Simulated scan of single mutants.
Amino acid sequence: MTRWIDGTGAARRIRERVAQEITTSFTPDTAPGLATVLVGQDPASAVYVASKRRTVRTLGMRDLHRAVPSSASQQEIASVIDALAEDPAVSGILLQLPLPAGLDAAALIDRIPMVKDVDGLTTLSAGLLARDQFGLRPCTPAGVIELLDSEKVTLAGANAVVVGRSDLVGRPMGQMLMNRDATVTVAHKGTADLAAVTRAADVLVVATGVRGLIGPEHVKPGATVVDVGIHRTPEGLAGDVRADELVGHADRLTPVPGGVGPMTIAMLMANTVRAAEWAREFS
Rank of each mutant, 00 (worst) to 15 (best):
Gln133Tyr: 03
Ala106Asn: 04
Glu277Gly: 14
Ala85Gly: 15
Gly215Phe: 11
Asp167Asn: 12
Ser25Val: 06
Thr27Arg: 12
Ala85His: 13
Asn159Ser: 14
Ile77Gln: 01
Val47Met: 13
Val205Ala: 03
Glu86Asp: 15
Val47Asp: 07
Ala187Arg: 06
Val205Pro: 00
Val115Gln: 13
Arg171His: 07
Ala46Asp: 14
Tyr48Lys: 11
Val197Ile: 03
Ala10Ser: 15
Leu97Phe: 06
Ala243Tyr: 03
Leu237Ala: 10
Met269Ile: 08
Arg66His: 13
Val206Cys: 02
Asp227Thr: 09
Gln74Leu: 02
Arg171Lys: 15
Val153Thr: 13
Gly7Asp: 08
Ala11Phe: 10
Leu136Ala: 07
Leu204Pro: 10
Arg3Gln: 13
Ile145Phe: 10
Asp119Gly: 12
Thr183Ser: 15
Leu59Tyr: 05
Ala156Leu: 01
His218Asn: 11
Glu76Phe: 09
Leu97Ala: 09
Gly92Gln: 11
Asp167Phe: 04
Val247Met: 01
Gly170His: 03
Gly135Val: 01
Arg137Met: 03
Thr27Phe: 12
Ser51Gly: 15
Arg54Lys: 15
Gly120Ser: 10
Val37Asp: 07
Leu59Val: 02
Arg66Phe: 08
Arg232Tyr: 04
Ala85Cys: 14
Gly143Val: 00
Arg171Asp: 00
Val184Thr: 11
Leu108Cys: 12
Ser150Ile: 07
Asp202Trp: 06
His218Lys: 04
Ala72Arg: 09
Ala196Met: 12
Glu146Tyr: 00
Glu146Gly: 00
Arg111Thr: 01
Arg66Leu: 12
Val37Glu: 04
Phe282Trp: 13
Asp149Arg: 15
Pro172Tyr: 02
Thr233Lys: 12
Ala207Glu: 08
Gln41Gly: 00
Ser79Gln: 13
Ser91Val: 07
Gln175His: 07
Asp244Phe: 01
Pro28Ile: 10
Gln175Phe: 01
Asp251Thr: 03
Leu59His: 03
Leu34Glu: 02
Leu213Met: 12
Gly143Arg: 00
Met178Ile: 00
Val163Thr: 13
Asp202Thr: 05
Trp278Gln: 14
Arg232Met: 07
Val219Ala: 11
Arg12Asp: 13
Leu147Gln: 10
Ala279Arg: 15
Pro98Ile: 04
Ala67His: 13
Gln20Asn: 13
Val153His: 06
Asp193Arg: 14
Val39Asp: 05
Asp42Ile: 07
Asp119Ile: 11
Ser79Thr: 13
Thr224Ala: 09
Gly170Leu: 01
Gly164Tyr: 06
Pro138Phe: 14
Ala89Asn: 10
Val225Arg: 08
Ala187Val: 05
Thr224Tyr: 11
Val225Asp: 08
Leu108Thr: 05
Leu124Val: 08
Asp104His: 00
Thr122Ala: 09
Leu204Ala: 11
Thr24Gln: 07
Leu147Ala: 09
Glu245Ser: 10
Leu168Pro: 01
Gln20Arg: 15
Ala223His: 11
Thr264Trp: 10
His231Met: 12
Ser45Ala: 15
Thr27Ile: 12
Ala126Cys: 02
Pro69Ile: 01
Asp110Asn: 14
Met267Leu: 12
Leu168Asn: 04
Arg274Trp: 07
Ala156Asp: 07
Lys152Ala: 15
Asp63Trp: 02
Val49Ser: 08
Ser79Leu: 09
Ile93Asn: 09
Pro69Asn: 00
Val203Glu: 01
Pro69Ser: 05
Ala187Trp: 10
Val210Tyr: 06
Val197Asp: 00
Glu245Gln: 13
Pro255Trp: 11
Met173Trp: 02
Arg252Val: 02
Pro172Phe: 03
Glu277Leu: 14
